[in-house]
Simulated scan of single mutants.
Amino acid sequence: MSQVKIFADSTCDLPHDWIKAHDIGIIPLYVTFGDQNYRDGVDLTTPELYAKVEQTGSLPKTAAPSPSDFIAAFTPFVEEGRDIVYISLSSELSSTYQNALIAGEEFPEGRITVVDSRNLTTGIGLLVMKAVAAAEQGKSAREIAGIVETVKPLVETEFVIDSLEYLYKGGRCSGMQNLMSSLLKIRPVIKVIDGKMTPAYKVRGKREKALEQMVNNTLDKKDEMDNDLIFVTHSMAAEDAEAIKRLLEQKTGAREVALSDAGCVISSHCGAKTIGIIYSKKA
């Protein structure tokens, strides 16, 4: 057993079998419908989320874990003598990182190391898997955090949103933008830049055209890739994600192209049929 326990939060969207196989601790964020709170991936699944949105006609709110949530999760491992490296959702998108720092102050100095991923979904997941590999090699918490800090500016996260409806309902775009996007069949493509979700470009026409553009953008950078791992992450778009996975396997020579399902928090902001490609450039 590694002397360093790796933690992430539910927005890392790693496959469940990977989490179990590598003993990764997961802190769930919260999804709230009315006065009912659900732990992302524990009390509520993505299909159930969309069913509730359909029933209520409104989007849920999302919230960070509290400092006490982190303390409760970290304490058993600290008590058994293990150090912890926690890799958080981008501090630009949530107070999750700040709450983890607050929790860390309740433990002896050096026992809890908190790293801001400056990313979301499997952009975090890539960093977590780098940390896991380092922990399994016996590296210290400080060494692991250093590896993650080196890799995180190299992570490329780009995804196609099928509709602006969820961004509109969540207050992230105007009603006019939503209307014009629907009328003109504009597919927005989002990138994570400086820790924020940033509109990168728009593709007019069929969804397939936007997905093809995203794939081509990825393939244009294949010589710059760290070909260890590429994620294709999706929200209720398994068929298209599988087709993109097969294409990337053929064209990139990556050791592994992995499929990942977006959890409730990510899905509540982006909506169904969102698909992203996430990889790291070479160091």
Rank of each mutant, 00 (worst) to 15 (best):
K169E: 11
I193L: 06
V155I: 15
E224I: 05
K206L: 01
Q177S: 11
Y166D: 06
R172S: 02
R142W: 07
P199I: 08
E158G: 07
G205Y: 03
R172V: 01
I147P: 15
M180P: 04
E224C: 09
E212C: 07
D226F: 03
K196P: 01
I193F: 02
M214D: 05
G175Y: 09
V160Y: 01
V192A: 14
L184Y: 11
S163E: 01
E149P: 03
K191I: 03
M214Q: 08
G171E: 02
A141T: 07
E224R: 10
D194N: 14
K209R: 07
K221Y: 04
N216T: 10
P153M: 13
D194C: 11
I144Q: 01
A145C: 09
V151F: 15
L219D: 11
G195W: 09
E212T: 10
Q213W: 10
K191W: 05
I186W: 02
R142H: 02
E143Y: 13
V151N: 04
S163L: 02
V155A: 12
D223M: 11
L164M: 02
V160M: 14
S182L: 12
M180Q: 08
R142F: 01
E224W: 09
K196N: 02
F159T: 02
L184F: 05
Q213D: 10
P199N: 13
A210I: 00
K169R: 10
L183G: 03
K191M: 07
E208Y: 03
E149Q: 08
A200G: 12
Y166I: 01
A141M: 13
S163R: 00
P199K: 12
E149N: 09
T218R: 13
R187V: 00
K191G: 15
P153I: 04
K202D: 08
K209F: 03
M176H: 01
E212S: 09
K221I: 15
V151K: 15
I193H: 07
K196A: 06
N216D: 11
V155N: 04
L184N: 08
K196C: 05
F159L: 08
K209M: 05
K196I: 06
V148P: 12
S182Y: 09
R204G: 04
I186D: 03
V203Q: 11
L219E: 11
G171K: 02
Y201A: 08
P188F: 14
Y201L: 12
K221D: 15
D220A: 14
K206N: 06
K169Y: 04
A200K: 09
L154E: 13
E212N: 13
S182D: 14
E149I: 03
S174W: 04
E165F: 00
Y201V: 02
S140I: 02
G195L: 08
F159E: 14
M214K: 06
L154D: 10
S140H: 09
L164N: 00
S181V: 02
I193S: 12
Q213E: 13
I147D: 10
K202L: 03
K169S: 09
I147T: 06
K221G: 10
L154H: 08
S182N: 14
G195H: 06
I193Y: 02
R142V: 00
Q177F: 03
L179I: 14
A200S: 12
F159G: 14
C173I: 06
N217S: 10
P199H: 10
I147Y: 08
E208D: 09
Y201W: 14
V151A: 15
E158V: 05
S163D: 04
D220G: 14
P153N: 13
